[in-house]
């Protein structure tokens, strides 16, 4: 026998179930208990940046909206900084900006929606392999899928990280929402470029959907299964 490895093992996931609101959004379950429910202040009123509304439905394998889903969003501020100590620029994060939101769907329609600011570009990973000097290149040259062939810090296209739980989902699903008006950044984004089937990248791109309350609306439907299935990530 080799020496044993003494790592602990991860606690297994279980579904959030149909009554997830009791714990995480009790107002929607039908009662008030906390001074303040968490997750309604992804970008407070004083946070700088372009304010937007993001909305959509989560659709199951039969084509029906999922009406008991809970989504959490995690994003950078308008300058691409995360409000977390592991971001080297976290001390400069915009005032009033938390970056985390929690939303539930309307019980009748399945529509979810949140207001935030459009995120900026956050740093990407460095390329794999030994640190080699990349020869200087013209400004217009694109990176490859690993971000190689680019001068200066590599940046990801603006995106919002999403985590989805519901009855029937055994392990929370991770995906990312990108923006259709960022075509150039999207084309250079290392994560989008990892999706081998080019047409599946489209499942990660939110589309403009008019205005509401004077704010631009971005529509992002998530298909759990079947035609147009959204790309989910093992992060």
């Amino acid at each position: 026998m080799p020496q044993p490895l003494h790592y602990l093992r991860e606690t297994a996931s279980q579904t959030a179930g149909p009554y997830v609101h009791i714990g995480l959004a009790p107002g929607a379950a039908g009662f008030d208990i906390y001074r303040e429910e968490l997750g309604w202040d992804i970008a407070g009123p004083n946070a700088e940046g372009q304010r937007i509304i993001v909305e959509g439905v989560v659709i199951d394998g039969t084509g029906a909206p999922v009406k008991d889903v809970l989504l959490e969003a995690w994003q950078a501020d308008a300058e691409g900084r995360y409000a977390h100590p592991d971001d080297p620029r976290h001390a400069e994060v915009a005032e009033d900006f938390r970056g985390w939101g929690r939303v539930i769907t309307d019980f009748e329609t399945g529509l979810w929606s949140f207001q935030t600011v459009k995120p900026g570009q956050v740093p990407a990973r460095r390329p794999l392999g030994p640190a080699v000097k990349v020869r200087p290149q013209s400004a217009g040259e694109r990176t490859d899928a690993l971000g190689r062939g680019h001068q200066g810090p590599r940046r990801q296209a603006p995106h919002i990280n999403l985590w989805i739980v519901a009855r029937g989902i055994n392990l929370g699903l991770n995906t990312r929402m990108y923006f259709a008006d960022e075509a150039e950044a999207n084309a250079a984004d290392a994560v989008l470029n990892l999706v081998e089937q080019v047409h599946r990248r489209e499942t990660l791109i939110a589309r403009p959907a008019g205005e509401r309350d004077g704010l631009p609306v971005w529509r992002f439907d998530i298909r759990l299964q079947g035609d147009g299935e959204t790309v989910f990530f093992d992060i």
């Binding site: 199951d60 394998g61 029937g168 759990l224």
Partner: peptide, 8 residues
């Protein structure tokens, strides 16, 4: 889980 599980 049958209709709410990704196939890919």
């Amino acid at each position: 889980s049958v209709s709410r599980s990704p196939r890919f």
